[in-house]
């Protein structure tokens, strides 16, 4: 839903950096998106291509890496992936918000909520 506004923020950040560093051309951009966000890599890719038109990033390759979720249990210290439930009830893999070891619901989400601009490759 908010892929456009997030893409605008990404493009703004990238183009500002490019201007500050007096970059002539942005060759590639590396992004990381967490699987627990509502951001859709395909839509982000589409919007960035649009937003990069007529800018130094016009020809940039856009790489988007998916970051899988990891949790830490506040009760038993379990750290690892969430259990995924392949349940026809939800029609999607839905991450279960319970510790797979002790069943506690008191969890900390360590990864999976990223919307990260990792780096860009540029030429002067």
């Amino acid at each position: 839903m908010h892929d456009l506004s997030v893409s605008q923020a990404i493009a703004r950040t990238i183009l500002k950096q490019a201007k500050e560093k007096r970059v002539r051309e942005i060759l590639s951009v590396n992004l990381e998106l967490g699987e627990l966000t509502f951001l859709n890599p395909e839509q982000i890719h589409f919007w960035l291509k649009e937003l990069f038109k007529d800018t130094p990033a016009q020809g940039a390759k856009i790489y988007i890496k998916k970051i899988f979720s990891r949790i830490k249990c506040k009760k038993c210290e379990y750290e690892g992936s969430m259990s995924l439930r392949d349940d026809s009830f939800f029609h999607i893999y839905f991450p279960l918000l319970r510790c797979p070891r002790c069943n506690s619901t008191s969890l900390e989400i360590k990864t999976g909520r990223e919307c990260l601009i990792r780096r860009m490759k540029v030429s002067t």
Partner: peptide, 16 residues
């Protein structure tokens, strides 16, 4: 040099 290529690390997380 003309056409020098390098990486810029941004590490900027918008949701964070």
């Amino acid at each position: 040099e003309e056409g020098e290529i390098f990486d810029i690390e941004l590490e900027e997380d918008l949701l964070r």
